[in-house]
Design a protein around this nucleic acid. Structure first.
Lengths: 303, 303
DNA sequence: ACATTACCATCTAATTTTTTGATTGAGTTA
DNA sequence: TAACTCAATCAAAAAATTAGATGGTAATGT
């Protein structure tokens, strides 16, 4: 004779209705069934829930307390059913995403905010990595989505292009490189290059855009890289949207590198066919596309 | 076909054991019963909990999430059973107490602390009232215990004496009454008397110890009364234990009232025969008796 | 490669739990 | 007082759950 959630439902309705018979009617049951359920619950708990010495059965103080706890139980049960309903409506329970720190966070955060506004039941986890670390983590954690800068595609992946992002080679105006015209590669190589540290543990990945000088500082993110640039520590690539202000204000200067001081990359939104996106992943995909394509945002930063 | 708590227990054990057969053995059931329970739960929730395409059945992501919620359900259920066990062990679900603000809080709080150390499952509610307010609230709220100063006993009550507490008539040393010898009643009546406001809404109750002058200030508690005394606003009774320090330090002085500047009262712990005390009430009664009888506490304050 | 074992779904029959419908005694209302 | 409502109880019926047997498939051992 196991305890049954239904007993608490009965208890609840019983108290609402005020009598066994009324509760029976409300639950489309016979009155004896209610009696039976209450008795069962009382026996199982070893506690008298109702005092029957008066005409109407009345909740005991213990009954009141058990009822209150039972409500919580019912609420948790309802919660589970709601969750299950969400799942069978196509929402996935979790959405894990890995994002390249080189990409602008603003549209990503806006997309997440809009997700929240849609009351999506999916639990979302977002990790930020750099360079090879993105793909490494995506594979290690078997994440669902990856928002990545450089992507070596394979068959099982399902990539989708986002609008291009441009980068520019910059340096502090106080730095020697700032004043030079038509800087040659060997000249660049004599200065400190600032780079983002690859966050993958195994270095199978190599940044295309490194210059190969002796003095390379590896930094752990664009915030640090930018402040190192501002301090005149060295030169390095920065996405336009991160240095627009500083260039305008003259706090940073473009390096006039002979090989070109601009390059663009195409961020990609990648999922895998093994783990097809659920409803939340699809919604996020759509929102990310919208936010990255929104005019007047970081595109304005482009010269 | 209703959903059953037992299903979640099965789910839990199933995941712990890793196989249907092992779970069946652990639960002393046939393997087919486990299959049946899982299928039932899946159907009811409309969600696939296990993927059976591989050799071993494996939790789906949805299953993992449902399991996590199910654990909460089981925890709540266990909580209810624990509570019920407490009740059938004689613990009452609630203990409501009303306390006279004239009594020292220290031993009461110590008793409550010791209650907590006993891991009493009873929910405790404590209200502080003054004079007639104590009994009024006791009756209105149908509380279980009342710790009261003056008590008009009736048959249905079950009072129990606590050690006496003494009060003294005090005033600021700067006040005119402070220097006077053998103060007569009519002299007292010309000054402001400070009294605690009766907290009962209907004033059926009248404080015995008032002097009947014109100028009476009603204050809402001893903290306020004491600071009014210290400021020299008037004179009034204070329990010894509250003014011991001030008398020693000379910040307050005894009034040399010809009718006597001391009176004692007997606090009483009262319950009613209609609502006999449960285990928590009995324990509290015992602890309160111990704390009020503890030597070296507020009794030291007595001259 | 073959036999053996472990895994889980499914089926039927047995068992247990729950519901029903009728009855009873006690308390309430007209 | 008669008619009524309340809740407990009982036996029978209905429903849910379990055990035991069987079968197909995947892993394991020889």
């Amino acid at each position: 004779m196991k305890i049954d959630i239904e007993s608490f439902k009965v208890l609840q309705v019983l108290v609402e209705c005020g009598s066994f018979a009324a509760a029976a009617e409300k639950l489309h049951k016979a009155q004896s069934a209610i009696s039976y359920q209450v008795k069962k619950l009382e026996q199982h708990l070893g506690v008298t829930l109702f005092s029957r010495d008066k005409y109407r059965a009345e909740l005991t103080p213990e009954g009141r307390a058990i009822l209150a706890e039972g409500q919580k139980l019912l609420a948790q049960m309802a919660n589970i059913e709601h969750l299950a309903q969400s799942y069978s409506d196509g929402w996935e329970p979790r959405l894990e995403m890995v994002i390249d720190g080189a990409l602008p966070m603003e549209p990503i955060l806006v997309a997440l905010k809009r997700m929240a506004e849609h009351k999506v039941p999916t639990k979302i986890q977002l990790s930020v990595e750099f360079l090879g670390g993105v793909q490494h983590r995506f594979e290690r954690d078997k994440a669902n989505l990856m928002l990545v800068k450089d992507f070596r595609g394979a068959l099982q992946y399902d990539p989708r292009d986002l609008p291009e992002i441009a980068s520019v080679l910059v340096v502090s105006p106080a730095h020697r490189l700032a004043g030079m015209k038509q800087v040659q590669l060997h000249e660049l190589q004599q200065h400190v290059e600032l780079t983002i540290e690859d966050s993958s543990p195994d270095f199978g990945y190599q940044d295309d855009m490194q210059f190969g000088g002796d003095k390379v500082f590896y930094l752990s993110g664009f915030v640090m890289k930018k402040s190192a640039l501002l301090k005149g520590l060295g030169f390095g690539w920065m996405p336009d949207y991160l240095v627009e202000e500083e260039l305008k204000a003259g706090k940073l200067a473009r390096v006039d590198y002979a090989g070109g001081n601009r390059f663009t990359f195409t961020p990609r939104l990648v999922s895998t066919r093994e783990r097809p996106l659920g409803r939340a992943g699809q919604l996020f995909t759509q929102l990310i596309l919208e936010e990255f394509s929104r005019p007047g945002f970081y595109h304005d930063a482009l010269g």
